[in-house]
């Protein structure tokens, strides 16, 4: 009943961005099976080709077994003659992995700590808040530099360290909501029915903070996709030749004047994706707010 009502309220402001995210996600996960070129393959004859350039048959020098070359470089090639479309699709894996998995770490770890702090208050809250202040005060870039120096930059460490850095923000959101919810009469009612602390946390409080946490998670996802781009410029993202959107923008920056499409196409894609995450989050939030204001 209420699910219907919520769905009716979402409208195209949610469904268009959501559809875009799904398309990008689907392309990234099924990249291996798509009829696109090998993202690492260098087309010496077509370096920095503009979008729509037809691929000629020079690729016969390459042995088979690889992906077949496309008839056309729909989005052109980069400075090293690699197919941009194919690199975008493979690069989406990195961007989405960072954008979607890192916030999950924050949601679970930060959400848990925030709920505990907001529910139990007292010493537990002081400790959690202090811990979060330490993480917040720790310079994120230095952490990433240190990790890439000692452990080596790879996707896993990137996700883990970015995830760690989002914990305080999620912790704050969860604690704020828990503080409000814990004062509500329905918590008293649950206690009267004999529910223990854990039951109250998991059955009364957490179901009510899932949606605000998810909305916030979408915003953080958008932010992290951008952050990955910025880190690529510093060489702190995934190492070459693994494609990522950020790395592609960075690689094209030297050729901006002559062949701007090398940077601008991935930048445009990142822009649309980031905007989609933000729009989707905003429209969920406005529906929830409208529903609450009708009480």
């Amino acid at each position: 009943m209420s699910a219907d009502a919520t769905a009716r309220g979402l409208g195209p402001g949610f469904w268009l961005p959501a559809a875009w995210i799904v398309i990008v996600l689907a392309a990234a996960t099924t990249a291996g099976g798509l009829p696109i070129a090998n993202p690492d393959r260098i087309h010496w004859e077509a370096m920095a080709a503009p979008p729509g350039t037809a691929a000629n048959n020079v690729d016969s020098t390459e042995s088979g077994g690889d992906h077949s070359s496309p008839g056309t470089f729909w989005l052109g090639t980069d400075a090293m003659g690699r197919d941009i479309l194919s690199r975008l699709v493979y690069g989406a894996r990195v961007s989405l992995a960072v954008g979607l998995v890192a916030p999950l770490i924050g949601i679970f770890a930060g959400g848990f700590l925030g709920c505990i702090a907001g529910y139990y208050r007292g010493h537990i809250e002081s400790i959690v808040v202090a811990l979060m202040d330490i993480v917040l005060a720790f310079p994120g870039l230095i952490l990433l530099l240190a990790i890439s120096f000692y452990v080596g930059a790879n996707l896993t460490t990137l996700i883990l360290s970015l995830g760690l850095l989002t914990i305080p923000a999620f912790c704050r959101v969860a604690r704020g909501h828990t503080l409000v919810l814990a004062e509500q009469a329905f918590i008293d009612a649950a206690r009267l029915a004999g529910a223990g602390d854990m039951a109250i946390l998991f059955r009364e409080i957490i179901p009510n903070i899932i949606i605000p946490m998810a909305v916030y998670g979408l915003m953080v996802a958008a932010f992290l996709i951008m952050a990955e781009g910025a880190l690529s410029f510093l060489g702190l993202s995934v190492p070459a030749p693994t494609p990522s959107w950020g790395a592609m923008i960075a690689e094209g920056k030297e050729f901006l004047e002559a062949t701007p499409h090398i940077s601008l196409i991935p930048a445009g894609l990142m822009f649309v994706t980031v905007v989609s995450f933000n729009l989707a989050g905003d429209s969920i939030r406005s529906v929830v707010e409208r529903r609450e204001s009708q009480l």
């Binding site: 009469a185 329905f186 008293d188 009612a189 059955r203 009364e204 009510n208 009480l295």
Partner: peptide, 9 residues
């Protein structure tokens, strides 16, 4: 309770 709406999850 007084505020019945708030007393329901």
């Amino acid at each position: 309770f007084q505020d019945a709406t708030a007393s329901l999850n």
